[in-house]
């Protein structure tokens, strides 16, 4: 796409549909927020369904949740909070034009995101899935054994299956967002290093940052809802 104000090589590119850089930046911020509103509505039904069934089957969900380790969830929460902080810093550095510091923050964020996914897979998903404890018809047989092995009381397996259906659906969708975040961060770093004409100001970093903070927000609610369920 051509620019019509490329008088200065380092000047931000203004796309042809915009009048000036201010309008372009505001439009991008507004567009991103519209997208986040849409993302909120995307997660909302899942949260609602989870809340509804927790309300109806609290005791069984409480027992089922014993297989999740709040410590691992806590570590992941901490990791995501750190990454969110790093992204906020990287926007700060981008605004000040300190590219090296900005890149370091972005790399740190990617490391956090990767660690998040690794922990999730290594300690939560893979052990469960390898024991057949994921929502499938065999869950009913597998789950009580698995719970016994772990020394926790087993809930009514039908309700535990509902719990784990929602657990895998919601955390899976969240992890998908984290994975997409990693790809987007890598692309951002690549373009910054290449000094691409797409990225001449801090706005792309801020856009990606907004997305990442949203991913963090979702987890802020997921953690207490799934890992820290109160005793009924």
């Amino acid at each position: 796409m051509s620019s019509h104000e490329s008088t200065h090589p380092d000047a931000p590119v203004v796309y042809e549909q915009f009048e000036d850089i201010g309008q372009q930046q505001e439009t991008y911020v507004l567009g991103m927020w519209s997208f986040l509103v849409n993302e909120t509505m995307f997660f909302a039904p899942l949260f609602f369904v989870y809340g509804l069934y927790t309300w109806k089957h609290h005791a069984d969900f409480y027992l089922a949740h014993a297989l999740l380790d709040w410590r691992i969830g806590g570590i992941n929460t901490f990791i995501l909070l750190m990454s969110s902080f790093a992204v906020a810093l990287s926007v700060h550095y981008a605004q000040k034009g300190r590219t090296r510091a900005q890149l370091n923050c972005l790399w740190f964020t990617i490391a956090c995101a990767a660690a998040f996914i690794w922990i999730k897979l290594q300690f939560e998903w893979i052990p469960k899935i390898s024991h057949g404890v994921f929502p499938n018809p065999e869950f009913i047989q597998n789950y009580p054994h698995y719970a016994m092995e772990h020394g926790v009381p087993a809930a009514d397996p039908y309700k535990a299956r509902l719990y784990y259906s929602l657990y895998f659906a919601i955390t899976g969708l969240h992890a998908l967002h984290v994975a997409i975040g990693i790809i987007v961060f890598l692309a951002l770093i690549y373009l910054i290093k290449k000094k691409s004409s797409l990225i001449t100001d801090y706005i792309p970093t801020e856009m990606v940052g907004l997305y990442w903070h949203f991913v963090d927000l979702v987890w802020i609610f997921l953690y207490p809802l799934f890992y820290l369920m109160p005793r009924p």
Partner: peptide, 22 residues
């Protein structure tokens, strides 16, 4: 406590469900 009761019946329910599906 209520959760202990829930525990009891849930584990019993689990073993029964196992029989049921076997």
């Amino acid at each position: 406590s209520t959760i202990d009761i829930a525990n009891d019946r849930a584990s019993a329910g689990a073993s029964q469900a196992k029989e049921l599906t076997n």
